[in-house]
Computed example of a mutant assay.
Amino acid sequence: MSSVERSRLTYAFDAYCGWCYGFGPALHEFAATNADRIELRVLSGGLFTGPRALPVAAYPHIPGANERIAQLTGVTFGDGYRAALADKTVVMDSTDAATGLVALRSQPGANALDAAAAMQRAWYIDGRSLSDAQVYRDLADELGLDADAVAAAYASPATRTAAEADFLQIRRLGVDSYPTLLLHTTHGTDRLGGPVSSADALTHALDQHLATAPAA
């Protein structure tokens, strides 16, 4: 592979996916380590949409899953998030969250992976609903983006349509669980690692795949 060719990868995630939150630090390290040879796009999968967009009380398994995520990945869950779980009324709506990701990542200079991580911190640390438009203004400021432009994008029907297109792309790729990291090759797609993979393991997996299947 020449110096100008980059491997194309897709990260299928959901902002309300605890395992994605746990996977985030390793993925960020992997992306930074391999920045000169990969192009990574971040797409939302739509974990809690339609009839599944319900208050957290509808998913009593979440606290137990969080304990396991913390144990296996080392991430921490914030007091604000624990308060939101205890309150039980916050609705997890992945379509709203996916719209927010599109609004952030579409701005000049935006980094989609950083935007995804900032959204997950807003929820898993601060317990802020990702259906709250003010959250995206605050995240825009945090990420050095134009808050007015992000807010306008979040409110735009076209942005919601783009978010729903993410869901369709993920389904077409055959992804049915999150997080999923895919490498696009000349013969299709290959999955790299899993939810508890380290950055080194992801890099090793990339090396192995590229040795046998050069990226498209």
Rank of each mutant, 00 (worst) to 15 (best):
L139W: 14
N111V: 07
A15L: 11
T186P: 03
D87N: 07
F48K: 03
G18D: 13
D79I: 04
W19N: 12
D176E: 06
R41C: 03
A35W: 09
S7M: 03
V102H: 07
A118F: 04
P60M: 00
S156I: 05
L113E: 00
T180C: 02
F30A: 02
D36G: 15
Q169V: 01
V42N: 03
A122C: 05
Y11Q: 04
L43N: 03
K88P: 00
Q208L: 13
T185Y: 05
L47Q: 01
P195R: 15
F167E: 00
G45F: 08
A140L: 09
R8T: 13
Q120R: 12
S129A: 08
V196F: 13
P25I: 02
I38Q: 05
E5P: 09
D146M: 03
V175T: 00
T186R: 14
A151I: 02
G109S: 01
L183A: 07
G46P: 15
G194F: 07
D87V: 01
A112N: 06
A12K: 04
L9M: 06
L9R: 02
D87T: 01
L181H: 01
R128F: 00
A155E: 05
G24F: 04
A97W: 09
S44K: 09
A117D: 13
F13R: 05
Q208G: 11
A205M: 02
A70E: 10
D14F: 06
A57M: 07
D166M: 05
Y81T: 03
G100R: 02
N66C: 13
V4R: 13
E39H: 12
E164C: 10
P63F: 00
A140S: 06
A117I: 10
Q120F: 02
I170D: 01
A97N: 10
A84V: 10
H209R: 10
L40P: 15
T186E: 09
D148E: 11
A201F: 10
Q71V: 05
Y59K: 00
N66Y: 11
T159Y: 01
V91K: 07
A53W: 05
A216P: 15
T161E: 14
L40I: 12
P25F: 10
Y154G: 08
C20Y: 05
D190M: 13
R171L: 07
T159D: 04
I69S: 11
R41I: 08
D138G: 06
V75T: 11
A151D: 08
T76S: 02
T212V: 15
S197M: 13
G100H: 07
D114Y: 03
A158C: 07
D36S: 15
I62S: 05
L182H: 07
G18K: 14
V150L: 09
L182R: 11
P55H: 08
R82S: 09
A201N: 03
L210E: 12
P60S: 01
A86T: 01
D114P: 06
A140K: 10
Q208M: 12
S7Q: 06
